[in-house]
Amino acid sequence: MVNTKISLCGQILDNPIIAAAGTFHYGYEMASLYDINMLGSFSCKGTTLEPRFGNPSPRIAEAKDGVIISIGLENPGVDAVISTEFPRLQKVYHKKIFANCCGFSPEEFAEVAYRMDQADVVGFLEINISCPNVKGASRFSCDPALAKEVTRLVKARCHKPVFVKLSPNVTDIVSIALACEEGGADGISLINCIHAMRIDLKSRKPVLALKKGGLSGPAIFPIALRMVYDVSHAVHVPVIGIGGIETPEDVLEMMMAGASAVEVGAMNLVDPYIGKKLVLGLPEAMERYGISDLSSIIGVA
């Protein structure tokens, strides 16, 4: 018997598999496919203070081994999420989620996080300073001072562990991670998607209505792995590795790079059962590589 449990800020997860924000909606619809309680956790759709429709269409473009997305944080607003979506979720899910909080000012981040902090089903706050597809929302992930300020304001108003989700679209991701740690972050999650675009040869125009979006999927795994490695060696708080995870072996590799847990994103969009497959496949992969306790491989590389 192998041990897949991991500890995150004093909370024990049954396994490190977390569905990433924006690829799992608010969870309850996926519960008709498999028991989502088998996941370590999941991060809910990025949520803002006010309802948002998001960006114009097309907001999806395909890439080799990945997808470029430009949704623009469509969500019904934090109050509707807490009053409508969470009760639906709690009928089918008894674990804790990551509340993915978004905003357009440090105060809005803090307000969304404060309201999410009160919700029973929320175990962790994931402060998404890195959405690449909303004008003005990603500047918090590019400036260490702003990233620290957002983190500090959120921490001042919340009790639950705060993870700050970082953008790869920066020169030095380590400096941003360190700033968040100084601001009081309990953990760092990375990476959000990578700025990207496609052009339609027939129309000679960008495929996406807003021209550019964020690339995710297996194509970005080695980039994410490198950034997780760099950040986890610099900070003293736990790191969640995100980016292109597709197989149990990818989970192990990401943890060896320094991640305490992983989030699975783009693969949820092509294989609705990927979470289940990873959870069920992980023990066998651990045995194959002689790993009895998953925690023992964190950052060994």
């Binding site: 690829t23 996926m30 969009l269």
Partner: peptide, 27 residues
């Protein structure tokens, strides 16, 4: 008909605005 990401309601790639608010074409 809309360009879709997932086809089962997860990614919000195919949302349209309706009289009752945003709706996912796929789900």
């Amino acid at each position: 008909e809309r360009r879709m990401g997932c086809g089962y309601g997860c990614c919000m790639g195919c949302t349209i605005e309706t009289k009752h608010g945003p709706r996912r074409v796929c789900k």
